[in-house]
Design a binder for these strands. Structure first.
Lengths: 131, 131
DNA sequence: CCGGATCCACCAGGATACTG
DNA sequence: CAGTATCCTGGTGGATCCGG
């Protein structure tokens, strides 16, 4: 997806799953994906450990999210033939670089959160004044 | 939200709407929000013009998204008392800085999209081989 | 211990019609 | 032109049970 002076009605395929930017945004958009990857930066972790650490995520969604991230090559799944079976998840190099991309964004968020909250207060005050 | 060696069960409030990072991610996650802001970088634009340019967005969702972005102070709404009424939307300075944050991300996406697609192919090949 | 399969509740979003 | 209101549906996620 080009970010320069391309007429906006000609942006190629923002509606397509093929649009790289859209894909990455969707991945980041995922409520748990990034959190999971950040958690894995600390080292290989097992399923139930993740389930305990990432408070609030359901069994099902954890499973789904892990599979999606594995499919994208952002983490790997390692099975050990113990009894009962042991499964470890590890972030990949690709996943680590994606995590690295988050820092500027976090920085922006922390810097401007005040502006946003202030704008929201103003907006709410105005709208409820007219209500 | 700290990104350093904080034990993950102590990350303060990822589940709270107050978490700046979560808030910004949610905004970026929005399928149309960023696209809309990028469109507005070209200059003030009217409602129906946006509706035409941003193909695929519904009337309702465009309205909702604009209102949300206005509430966050990322764009402003200007009403002109013509007949019929004219309304222009303009991106704010805050909105522009957020747009600026997207470029590294887009760059990452374009750089690594090949890796991701390859990983997906591998994964799909393996899983359907076992099916 | 690690999940998959199933059932269900909820709501974001599309289509449409209506106001100022 | 610029929205708001209403109805409706499809998909997401929670809860639970079951199998490897």
């Amino acid at each position: 997806m080009k970010m320069e002076r391309v007429p906006f009605d000609q942006i190629p395929n923002v509606f397509s799953d093929q649009c790289p930017t859209r894909m990455v945004l969707d991945r980041i958009a995922d409520k748990w994906a990034i959190l999971l990857l950040l958690r894995l930066l600390d080292g290989p972790t097992r399923f139930n450990q993740l389930h305990r650490d990432i408070r609030g995520i359901s069994h099902k969604v954890l499973s789904q999210t892990l599979k999606k991230l594995e499919r994208d090559g952002l983490l790997t799944r390692h099975v050990f033939a113990t009894v009962p079976v042991t499964v470890e998840y590890r972030v990949t190099t690709l996943g680590e670089t994606l995590c690295g991309m988050m820092y500027p964004l976090v920085n922006w968020a922390e810097t401007h959160i005040g502006d946003i909250l202030a704008a929201q207060s103003d907006f709410d005050a105005k709208t409820e004044a007219s209500a």
